[in-house]
């Protein structure tokens, strides 16, 4: 099918974009990479009166890395970020971001799909919302009046729902630095290569002097929105990395999940995946197991 008619605007800078969004509000839909929006337009599931194309907006894409932190412009292509991260030394917390990107669709999707677009779309089974949640990123949001910065938990509100207002634009994602002894891991089970996750787990763990001092854990596909495993983080911090402790914490957390059943399996199956992927991702990030340990997932 073809999209319903719309009026097309391609603003040149962020200020013009914000003015357009203020003027047209709910009538307008923002187009970034289009890898989720355009299928919805083609099926006429979305029929915006005005399409605001961000692809000509100057200063909205780009990657800046300094002192262990990462600033990612919202319209940075997923493939650009993947290339940037692949060109840097492996082993740090941002490894999980690189791994997560590898699970998104296919090369053709990542060449066009944007980092901010995936976050603003807020598919509960998407990789990037879980990855930025585990990393404790800050999302920078602007409207014509000013800027606000929110944590992922204030951004992802529910099933395809964020706290972005109609006149607001996600402009940047800031990944904070983590201590030097931090590692990340991202594990996913999906039905086919490139599908959205049945369940995916993003894990960041800092181990110093034999103890876990800090951690970030988030899951995709386990609930109507990406969820952080705060109870597991609380249980881990202060303890020595231990497979038994990790298994118990992961099991307790997964038992409380209430994932929606679908044609690929009952809720119990997703709880099973959540428990095991959590265990393995934490073990990897804590240095208890190598990447090979996850391949049997």
């Amino acid at each position: 099918m073809k999209p319903a008619p719309f009026d097309y605007l391609a603003p040149a800078d962020i200020e013009e974009t914000l003015d357009v969004l203020r003027e047209y509000g709910d009538e307008a839909k923002v187009l970034a990479g289009g890898q989720s929006l355009v299928p919805m337009l083609n099926f006429r599931l979305a029929r915006p009166a005005v399409l605001v194309d961000l692809n000509q907006v100057a200063g909205l894409d780009g990657i800046q890395a300094e002192d262990g932190a990462l600033r990612i412009g919202a319209t940075t292509r997923q493939r650009s970020l993947e290339r940037h991260l692949s060109s840097r030394p492996a082993g740090g917390p941002q490894d999980l971001l690189r791994q997560a990107l590898g699970y998104i669709g296919h090369p053709q999707i990542r060449a066009r799909g944007t980092v901010g677009g995936s976050l603003a779309h807020a598919d509960p089974a998407a990789e990037l919302p879980a990855a930025v949640s585990a990393l404790g990123a800050t999302l920078v949001i602007r409207n014509a009046e000013g800027t606000r910065e929110v944590a992922p938990d204030e951004f992802f509100e529910g099933f395809f729902t964020t706290s972005l207002a109609a006149e607001e634009l996600l402009t940047e994602i800031r990944v904070p630095p983590w201590p030097g002894s931090t590692r990340g891991a991202f594990l996913e089970v999906s039905r086919r290569r490139g599908d959205f996750a049945q369940v995916a787990v993003a894990a960041v763990v800092t181990v110093a002097d034999g103890r876990i001092t800090r951690a970030g854990l988030a899951l995709a596909g386990a609930a109507p929105r990406t969820v952080q495993a705060y109870s597991v983080v609380d249980g881990l911090v202060g303890s020595e990395p231990d497979a038994g402790v990790i298994a118990e914490l992961a099991g307790n957390f997964a038992a409380e999940l209430d994932p929606p059943p679908d044609t690929h399996g009952p809720a119990e199956y997703r709880r099973h995946l959540a428990r095991h992927l959590l265990q393995r991702a934490i073990a990897q990030a804590a240095g208890l197991a190598g990447p090979r340990a996850a391949s049997a997932a």
Partner: peptide
């Protein structure tokens, strides 16, 4: 498929492979 799944419309845009069904010509 016109929904970005099948890949039959793959072309190179400035050297990058993309789904030509998920882009508008004006872009």
């Amino acid at each position: 498929c016109e929904q970005g799944v099948c890949g039959a419309c793959t072309v190179l845009l400035d050297g990058e492979p993309i789904r030509a069904c998920l882009m508008f010509a004006v872009q």
